[in-house]
């Protein structure tokens, strides 16, 4: 109790002591700003406002119009949103968006964490393997997708292997198959993103003290218990970062779909992002595309906020 009181007193003193200094600093800072330093930031602020907020705001405004991308337009209220909600193909696109986002987050993080654990300490070739696993991340998503498109092609290596082992009946147009096409997209995303999750987890694992793990091992815990009760709690911030980035990137996946399937077959792999592009720029429904973009932005915002809350809870 005594020591606690002392600590409070010391803390109070520490709290009070810097008061005048902070006031001085604050006054000085105000003075500096008052003498015009904020002017220096103004061009940058204006550019940020113009590019990020005004442009986005104008784009959002068009969601309530029937603009085709050319000529004049009329305000149509919520008609675009009603049309979206009444269109089964857009609901399918929303479902695909969520499937790819959450499917990729789950698989990428599980596999990425597993690889990070495997390559964390003991393996001699771990540095080479880390480079190999990270390599796909630095490649262009379009380039990666075109390589995979060749792999999935009817005349590509998968079907060639199937034929060589006598499984000709299993051959199919993988990207033209309504059931498999979305899984093909998921495979490509996972293949490219796993290395990124691995790096985040490796950074997290570097901060886990070996002494704690050794102490747990001496206490007779199993490998799984050590992972679940020691390692995983210690790398929760890494989990939060990796899943947040994964969800945001997964929700706006675009390049891979355009290169692999172009949203096909017959819309089976359309997502909100591909629909935004097609409606706004290919089909001259700019207002409708803007409404879709607004919905996509709202969804990303909601999941980002949820993820922030989860992160805050973890830190506390």
């Amino acid at each position: 109790m005594h020591s606690g009181t002392e600590a409070n007193t010391v803390a109070g003193q520490q709290h009070r002591t810097p008061g005048p200094d902070r006031k001085t600093r604050s006054r000085r800072a105000r003075g500096v700003v008052g003498f015009g330093h904020w002017w220096w930031a103004l061009p940058g602020v204006l550019v940020v406002l113009a590019i990020h907020y005004v442009a986005t705001g104008v784009g959002g405004f068009f969601a309530f119009t029937n603009w085709t991308g050319i000529g004049s337009f009329q305000l149509v209220g919520l008609a675009n949103f009603q049309k979206i909600l009444g269109d089964p193909s857009k609901i399918l696109a929303l479902g695909n968006t969520l499937f790819l986002a959450f499917g990729s987050v789950v698989i990428v993080n599980i596999v990425g964490l597993a690889i990070a654990l495997a390559l964390n300490r003991t393996l001699k070739s771990r540095y080479i393997l880390r480079v190999l696993f990270f390599m796909p991340v630095v490649l262009s998503p379009l380039a990666v997708s075109y390589i995979w498109k060749f792999i999935f092609d009817f005349n590509g290596p998968i079907n060639a292997i199937l034929k060589s082992v006598g499984l000709e009946s299993w051959q199919k147009s993988w990207l033209g198959d309504p059931t498999f096409a979305i899984w093909a997209v998921l495979i490509v995303i996972v293949w490219q993103q796993t290395g990124f999750a691995m790096v985040i987890y490796l950074a997290g694992l570097a901060g886990v003290p070996t002494e704690v793990e050794e102490a747990a091992a001496i206490d007779g815990t199993t490998l799984w218990q050590r992972f679940w009760h020691v390692t995983l709690p210690a790398i929760r911030p890494a989990v939060a970062i990796s899943t947040t980035l994964g969800i945001v990137n997964g929700l706006r996946v675009f390049d891979q779909i355009m290169a692999l399937t172009n949203g096909g077959p017959a819309g089976a792999t359309e997502t909100l992002a591909t629909q935004v592009y097609k409606q706004a720029f290919s089909l001259a429904n700019f207002g409708y595309g803007a409404a879709l973009a607004l919905i996509l932005s709202a969804i990303i915002l909601v999941f980002a906020v949820i993820q922030q809350r989860v992160t805050r809870g973890t830190e506390s």
Partner: peptide
């Protein structure tokens, strides 16, 4: 009158080939 009609035709034919439409 607009690009969407031809897009519906093109997409629809692919759907006929896969049995989706």
């Amino acid at each position: 009158p607009n690009s969407a009609v031809y897009d519906a035709l093109g997409t629809g034919v692919q759907g006929l080939l896969t049995g989706q439409t």
